[in-house]
Structures are given as C-alpha cells and as structure tokens.
Amino acid sequence: MTANRIAHVLIHGRVQGVGFRAWTQHQAQLHGLKGWVRNRHDGSVEAVFSGPGEMVEVMLKACHKGPAGSLVQLVEPVDSVDHELDGTKGFEVRRSA
C-alpha cells in the first residue's frame, strides 16, 4: 500500500462548459479519492485530490486528457499548505471561486 498524498492543481485550457467538474468528480470517486473541484473566474478549473499516492497519480494523468470536448493545455501544481479538506466527505463539486 502506498502512502497518502494530496495534490492541489489548476487545470488550464478549454475546461469550462464541457462537463469537466462532473467528470472529475466521477473519476475521483472511481479511484476512491477525497477532495473537491471548482471552476475559477479566470476560466481554469481548480481541484484537490487526496488518497493513496498511486490513485492520485492516476487522477492527475487523467486530468491531462480530461473529458470529451475539453482541451487541456496545462495541469499546474499549486504549492499550498491549506488544502481546505476539513469537513470534506468524499469528492465534491464546489462553487466557483
């Protein structure tokens, strides 16, 4: 079993209006991850993934492709100490930031 990992990322490209948040939630749930995803006002999508390191890595690779209709240009790691996971149960879609 691998150690748990938390990854906080910004996903840039054509990622809004294509079902990216719902797709991300579904994929994260399939991989047993906790965390959240939300649209940002700058047109990007922000997400935090928490769980076994192997599954987080699989999710990050999936985010480089995204759902049909998306065009991911960059998955940018965010250096953050506070990942806002307090009270998060499972994987949720949050309001835009």
Rank of each mutant, 00 (worst) to 15 (best):
M59R: 06
D79P: 04
F20S: 01
V45P: 01
A68S: 13
G35W: 02
V48D: 00
M55L: 14
A7K: 02
E76W: 03
H12V: 01
L30C: 15
E46F: 02
T88S: 07
V18I: 14
D42G: 08
H41D: 07
F49W: 07
R14D: 07
G87E: 01
E76M: 05
F91E: 07
T24M: 00
H26E: 08
G53S: 15
Q73E: 13
A22F: 15
M55E: 15
A62G: 03
V18H: 11
S96D: 09
G32Y: 01
R40C: 11
V75P: 06
H26Y: 08
I11C: 01
S96M: 09
H12Q: 12
D42M: 10
R95I: 12
H31P: 00
V48R: 04
W23D: 04
H8T: 07
G17K: 09
D42H: 10
E76I: 03
N39G: 08
A47Q: 11
R5Q: 11
T88L: 07
A47N: 09
K61W: 12
N39A: 10
L71F: 14
Q25P: 06
D79R: 09
G51R: 07
N4A: 06
I11V: 15
W36M: 00
V56F: 04
G19Q: 08
D86H: 11
S50F: 02
G17L: 14
A22K: 11
E54C: 08
H26L: 14
A22N: 08
G66M: 15
E76T: 03
G32H: 05
F20Y: 12
